[in-house]
Amino acid sequence: MKSIFQYIFLFLIGSLLVSSCSADSFSSETGATDTGVAGSYARFITVGDYLYIVDNSSIQTFSLADASLPEKTNTQEIGSQIESIFNYQDKLFVGSGSGLYIYTIASNGVPSQTAAYDYSFPILPCDPVVANDTYAYVTLHDGDIGGACGGENIVNELKIFDVSDITDPQELITYPMQRPKGLGLDGNILFLCDDWAGLKIFDVSDPYNIELINQFDSFQAFDVIPLNGLLLCVATDNIYQFDYTDINNIHELSRIPIQL
């Protein structure tokens, strides 16, 4: 009899411990990990015990076996005008002005290139990339005033690639945009910062027929981080936060002002 009470008691304690772990509804999308979530313009990314850094032309691997002392284990040349790096599972997607590069990460952390898709543009636009198992989404935009990125070429578009075979990415379709910059993906929802056109939210279930669900065009959007219902959107005047737990009722939660 005593042991039954003991079991019940232990069960109750256990339940309390488990429930306290579930935290609030906006906790990190990947649960209890020790790395965070980067925006799409990141050139640093931590994956497991490794830190990947892209610079203008190369990708470097640092071992974080001792997280306080990164140790460089590999350097590879990629190309030119490297803009961003994105991680999905054991893959790395590198966006550059010249093309889209895909890598798989070996067990020792070293990336090996599986594909290099050349855009063949005469002048280099800017371009972050996000991806999942099947698709990669790339934005290309023309040069900034004063030339932060790539000159006067008029290329402003969203490209969707089929990356189910990472050795042979297929360009599926291109959508014209105002001047697209950062982007973020949560399931079939694509958040796209379209500069003066603001934040656009698309249902991308069908890549050939993406559907604009909502658009907030009162600000100049630059980059986003979707966090399982909470969206951080960096704009030139504020960091906006939106609740998108109900995709049909996306609403602003707050804004952090930027001095202009």
Binding site: S27, S28, T35, G36, V37, G39, I225, L227
Partner: peptide, 9 residues
């Protein structure tokens, strides 16, 4: 403003 990163609230 530059790049943005999120971890643990």
């Amino acid at each position: 403003l530059g790049k943005i990163y999120y971890k643990d609230n």
